[in-house]
Amino acid sequence: MASHTGRLTLAPPTEGAPLTTEAPAVRVRGLTRGFDGRAVLRGVDLDIARGEFVALLGRSGSGKSTLLRAVAGLDHGVAGAGDVDTPESVSMVFQDSRLLPWQRVLANVTLVLPGPGARERGRAALTEVGLEGRERAWPHELSGGELQRAALARSLVREPRLLLADEPFGALDALTRTRMQDLLLRLTERHRPAVLLVTHSVDEAIVLADRVVVLSEGVVAADLRVDLAAPREVAAPGFAALRARLLSLLGVDREERATGE
């Protein structure tokens, strides 16, 4: 599943380096997947550069989760063809935190870290997501937002080359979601993994991503670069236009049209 592209450097790719000359972190070619004879992905091509943040938008049933699971290598027994190249170290964040309920928070974070220094790295990762002092808590003692923070810590403590996220904030309330988006942005800027984020929120995609890919009926319907300055607030210039465009690509264009253009 994983391809070894000879990455010897540990340093993150430098800003502004021509990403195109490097091998991409993720390379998907001609990916098809189907369930019970019904095609869900009909030939998807997708490249994600190292350190690039890609948001995947699509309506329900557009195949975005199927694509994510294929990239994660979690679709055993699903019929299909095509090539998926991913780095060796991949982490995934799910909509539910999937902390093991019988392990304390720190043990959840250090689940696969090798031996000595694991606890310190786990502690540091928890501090990074704002959960210092909660190391010995049980998962059921955490709130929804805290659970996802811990899940993020568990994903990033391994320093993955690729972070996959399946609507990670979909179950959170609006306020918590905004704070988690800020956190994810800070963390990905520091750790620089390539990110593939599946979301149903157009705003979330625009706020977070370098590139937004819209999936429709199993093919890539649009692939847009987001050239907005940070901080990307809804009131920022260009935000509304991009949002209107994405919404119309998704087939939602009633009132947004009026506010957008």
């Binding site: 979690l74 995934m92 799910f94 999937r98 568990r154």
Partner: peptide, 15 residues
């Protein structure tokens, strides 16, 4: 879901 998690984390059989 936990089996899936273990797979994405690449846990060994013993872990």
């Amino acid at each position: 879901r936990y089996v899936e998690l273990a797979e994405t984390l690449g846990t060994g059989r013993a872990t």
